[in-house]
């Protein structure tokens, strides 16, 4: 296909473009993004349909899926054991696609609080939890968490008692982490759906603990 062909059939995004909903003015790198996507579609590296489906997959992921797994693990010790062994396989049991990059769940206990970071870039279990918050990718978070985790957690309003060990897990391209938070007290009567409602993205990153009002 040439660069003058019509995109009515294979343009993977709503057409015509709606630059006004984009963040700020059009930049050369935004133009380059669409140019690269079109070239790869022209060259049949992937199809417009692949692009559309991938964008849908990105939009379909949210912390809710991780929260469902956490709630299920709280109620089913056998499932919890399998989740701590292999998150991706445990997700599949619940018909959740956690992607192909291995995710390791680390469990918070009364003695150990865990928190995740990626100091070298921005590795995050996004195939399970959705795209990461901006601060996760920030220089401040990446630099400081490994050296002064308690101070960073305080900035999120999280005070970890001195007798609780804080462990920081540094993610890589090959292994990502998620936190299995502690089930809060006083939730014995709650069902799985209600429990899942307590589990936030930030407590699965480990910067907060579940706080019940």
């Amino acid at each position: 296909m040439s660069e003058t062909h019509s995109h009515d059939d294979d343009w993977p995004y709503p057409h015509p473009q709606q630059p006004d909903i984009e963040d700020g003015p059009l930049t050369d790198l935004m133009i380059m993004t669409d140019a690269v996507a079109e070239l790869l579609i022209d060259k049949e590296v992937f199809s417009a349909d692949d692009m559309r489906r991938t964008l849908e997959a990105i939009d379909s992921k949210s912390p809710a899926e991780g929260a469902r797994m956490v709630a299920h693990a709280w109620l089913d010790p056998d499932f919890k054991a399998r989740m701590l062994e292999d998150v991706n396989a445990a997700a599949e049991e619940m018909s959740i696609d956690a992607g192909t990059i291995p995710i390791l769940a680390v469990e918070n206990t009364k003695d150990i609080h865990n928190v995740i970071v990626c100091t070298l870039c921005s590795c995050y279990p996004k195939y399970l939890l959705g795209l990461p918050p901006d601060w996760y990718k920030s220089r401040a978070y990446r630099s400081r968490l490994v050296r002064e985790p308690r101070a960073v957690l305080k900035e999120f309003g999280t005070e970890i008692p001195d007798d609780v060990e804080v462990r920081v897990h540094d993610s890589t391209a090959e292994l990502r982490y998620m936190i299995l938070p502690m089930r809060p007290k006083g939730t014995e009567d709650m069902d799985e759906e209600a429990l899942a409602g307590l589990v936030t993205r930030d407590c699965m990153i480990g910067v907060t603990v579940i706080d019940r009002d």
């Binding site: 970071v117 100091t119 070298l120 901006d134 601060w135 401040a140 630099s143 400081r144 050296r147 960073v152």
Partner: peptide, 14 residues
């Protein structure tokens, strides 16, 4: 490779 370096407070804006 910024792990362990000094930096300002974490900006919580998203």
């Amino acid at each position: 490779d910024m792990g362990g370096l000094d930096a300002g407070p974490v900006d919580p804006a998203e």
